[in-house]
Amino acid sequence: MNNIEITIPKTLQEALELISGGNEGIGIIAGGTDVVAGMRQGSNRFGGINQLVDVNHIKEMKGITGAGGIVTIGAAETFSGIISNKIIRKELPLLAKACGTIGSVQIRNRATIAGNFVNNAPCADTVPVLLAYDSTIEIKSLAGKRELPLAEFLKAPYRTQLNSDEIVTSIKVPLPKGDFKGDFYKLGRRRAVAISRITLALLIEIKESRINRLRIASGAVTPIGTRFNGIEKEFEGKTADEKTLKAIASRLGERVIEVTGLRWSSEYKLPVVQQICYQMLYSAVYGGGK
């Protein structure tokens, strides 16, 4: 690891040129909390890497801006930066909460938002939230840029749509229009610096006692972070009573079984994720709770 080359481009153009050759030995590093730890542990995700491009100093990839009802977060923005941002705390509270549950202060001071999902680990804590917020990501290469919903970007465990000559440059999160209530939930084996066992993000809008809009996304109980569009459609328009909330939670259980199958941990996770889903819905609709 010592004799690896590290380049610190000042501009995105420079960075894109560096990775344009399709060289398998080049990797991107930002906070390094995944890359450096992974390389040290000999993870095969970083096996052939001999050069790292540090994107921390690329202006276009930093910062948080809001315009036209969309919050744009630089891909290399740290979790600490996101948590302390006023717009995010006010308008995207689930994201602030999710970022706040990641690692420790030391990790959050370095780790970046794109770093959380570019490897598409199932336990990435921001993913369910970003999915629930209908986030899209911007990807650039020398050939140009493309934007796609995060849900499409995440293909399979540890696999994404990202090509080797591309960099994720920003995440665009549209501010939810309407009177959404909701929460982010994370269950780990301890209260801090924990790998997620279950994560859920939930947004729900009630109009005239009916569910107007519903968004549910999970992490760690599904092979990759997953948005449950089918369930959302099924229950939009239904009366927001306890019976419906329970039905949503049960349906989530069914869907998790379909998506994930039965695994060693299902005996615990399946019932718990349904309970948690119900409780989150209940708290959102009736207030109070936790």
């Binding site: 005996e267 019932p271 349904q274 209940y282 709770g289 936790k290």
Partner: peptide
Amino acid sequence: FSNPVLKDNDFIRPE
């Protein structure tokens, strides 16, 4: 675990 999908009266309120 033989009936992994929860039924109505399985659910417990947050409080």
